[in-house]
């Protein structure tokens, strides 16, 4: 169902409209937050905070932009505020490599290890580069939509994305070299 119909439904007093919006966007929001913040439990708490803000401010959403753009902007800003409060990034869990593991579990472990390295590499990017990268790679937004979400120019999106990838390249070379993807 169209977002505007759901918003109208909610504003006319039917809370199901809001619930449907949450169901539609909850996984998008939590994955953006998770990629920006780096910890699952924390991502869920921040996502709760984001949807509370949406609930309280939906009546003031002016609909000049798409609802998703507005929602993602709230998501990025709320995560940023949360991270500023935290002051430092949560260290990622150490993954112990075991010697006596089967092929499947070894593959799983390698996959998890790879995922952790990617997560750490993204986490180490400055927030302004990280947010652009996450909106592009995790959410698949266009440059235009990223610019609207972050309130910057398309050229800024382009250059931040370029720099983010340059930074990631050096950190991720060990993985993509060994995977034969070079």
């Amino acid at each position: 169902m169209d977002d505007n119909i759901l918003i109208d439904k909610f504003l006319s007093g039917d809370k199901e409209g809001f619930e449907m919006l949450v169901k539609k966007y909850q996984n998008h929001v939590v994955n953006i937050v998770y990629s920006l913040a780096g910890r699952i439990s924390e991502a869920e708490d921040i996502a709760q905070d984001i949807f509370m803000k949406v609930y309280n401010n939906l009546s003031s959403f002016n609909r000049k932009a798409q609802f998703s753009t507005w929602l993602y902007r709230i998501s990025v800003n709320t995560t940023y505020s949360h991270l500023r409060g935290r002051k430092q990034f949560v260290p990622l869990e150490n993954i112990k490599r075991e010697n006596s593991i089967g092929k499947n579990s070894r593959e799983q472990l390698e996959s998890k290890e790879k995922s952790e390295i990617i997560k750490k590499a993204i986490a180490e990017l400055p927030f302004k580069f990280r947010s652009v990268l996450v909106l592009k790679e995790i959410e698949g937004l266009s440059y235009k939509d990223i610019a609207k979400t972050l309130g910057c120019r398309i050229g800024t999106v382009e250059s931040r994305l370029f720099r983010a990838r340059e930074m990631l390249k050096s950190k991720l070379i060990p993985i993509y070299s060994e995977g034969g993807q070079k």
Binding site: Q26, N27, V30, N31, Y34, S35, I40, A43, E44, A47, S111, K112, K114, S115, I118, K119, I122, L133, E137, I138, R165, L168, K169, L172, I175, Y176, Q181
Partner: peptide, 13 residues
Amino acid sequence: VKRLIAQKEKIKL
């Protein structure tokens, strides 16, 4: 790099 990031784990609530 783009492919690697796409492999990053996703959460499903």
